[in-house]
Amino acid sequence: MRVRQPEFDFSNSHAHWAPNLEFAQSQNGASVGIPPLERFLNRVMAKARKEIKGDDPESVALRADVTTFIRQESCHYAMHDRMNEMLVRDGYDRVPELEREIEAHYARLFETKSLAFLTAYCEGFETLGPASAMAWCGDSLDAYLKDSDPNIETMWRWHLLEEYEHRHVCYDVFKRIHGGYFLRIYAFFYQLYFFSKYAGKVKNYLLEVDRAKMDAAERKESKKREKMVAKMMMKNILYNLLQVLSPSYRPHVLPIPKIWQQLESDIDAHWIKPQQKAAPNQDLTASPAGHPA
């Protein structure tokens, strides 16, 4: 794993950053929830790291993995915070209010749930990363990303590139803290419900504002496109998510997304300061340190 800090300029970006505004707003809806969620992930992983004791190679490697995970997620939510500012700038005034609602949800979870459940919740959410990376670090979204804002498109690709890269960390932590299959599956569906609920709530608000400026025919077409986008996104990730339900599921051995290496090279060449490029990368075809395949 490697912490990258690419530079994206959102000063001229807008909510309709892709030609299909329903696709753009769907992603924007998810983006608003990412800073509260990833701050929550970091709090849980920092708490769990204190419980991973011992100087054996596996414990040392897992603590190091958690540290890198936290640093990557910190870069992610900071970048999404910056991107989300454009939504307020574009007149979607309720975005800060909706983000506070999402933040309160994760604060309640952190204060009221056991560490075993919290790590299972984090593992549940992190299963969405590799599934989404297969789309964003592949070519299945090309039709939707044609003529999109390159800063926002590459931001999402970078984010999902690293979500794939640290796909094993929350799984390994959960296995260390609890590891039970039924808790993992329960937490997977629990987090999926709430993530979908809040992302959908934000998306619906954004599209409501958009559709207030449309006539009846335009609104009808917009709703039709929204359904097509939802169907496309579900098709892109459903197969990969079904693997999560297997008792033998292990994220360590998931296939590398189609253009992962090409995308990493492009980000290194065009979006990252030269001094960061010397940082070594983990061989993604190998098992993480201390965790045999």
Score class of each variant (00 low, 15 high):
residue 56 D to L: 02
residue 129 G to L: 03
residue 53 K to A: 13
residue 48 A to C: 08
residue 47 K to M: 10
residue 41 L to Q: 04
residue 8 F to V: 14
residue 20 N to V: 13
residue 136 W to Q: 06
residue 125 F to C: 02
residue 120 A to C: 08
residue 81 D to I: 13
residue 23 F to E: 08
residue 19 P to N: 04
residue 64 A to M: 01
residue 99 E to I: 09
residue 117 F to S: 06
residue 35 P to A: 12
residue 28 N to G: 06
residue 109 L to P: 02
residue 109 L to N: 03
residue 60 V to G: 01
residue 76 H to P: 02
residue 8 F to L: 10
residue 119 T to P: 06
residue 57 P to C: 04
residue 38 E to L: 08
residue 8 F to S: 13
residue 11 S to Y: 05
residue 135 A to M: 09
residue 100 R to T: 15
residue 51 E to G: 05
residue 32 V to K: 09
residue 78 A to Y: 11
residue 16 H to L: 10
residue 95 V to F: 08
residue 35 P to V: 12
residue 68 T to I: 11
residue 73 E to C: 04
residue 42 N to Y: 02
residue 126 E to W: 06
residue 102 I to D: 03
residue 19 P to I: 02
residue 25 Q to T: 07
residue 120 A to M: 04
residue 94 R to F: 08
residue 128 L to Q: 09
residue 135 A to G: 06
residue 68 T to E: 09
residue 109 L to K: 04
residue 47 K to C: 04
residue 78 A to D: 14
residue 63 R to M: 06
residue 19 P to A: 02
residue 109 L to S: 00
residue 90 D to G: 10
residue 9 D to H: 12
residue 48 A to W: 01
residue 123 E to H: 12
residue 99 E to K: 15
residue 88 V to A: 11
residue 4 R to C: 00
residue 39 R to Q: 15
residue 117 F to H: 11
residue 39 R to D: 09
residue 12 N to T: 14
residue 13 S to K: 09
residue 18 A to R: 06
residue 21 L to C: 07
residue 44 V to K: 01
residue 100 R to P: 03
residue 130 P to E: 05
residue 8 F to Y: 15
residue 72 Q to Y: 01
residue 20 N to A: 12
residue 32 V to C: 11
residue 81 D to M: 13
residue 56 D to F: 11
residue 35 P to W: 11
residue 62 L to K: 04
residue 8 F to E: 11
residue 22 E to K: 06
residue 92 Y to R: 12
residue 51 E to W: 01
residue 82 R to P: 01
residue 32 V to S: 11
residue 16 H to Y: 04
residue 39 R to K: 15
residue 88 V to Q: 14
residue 66 V to K: 05
residue 53 K to G: 00
residue 83 M to Y: 15
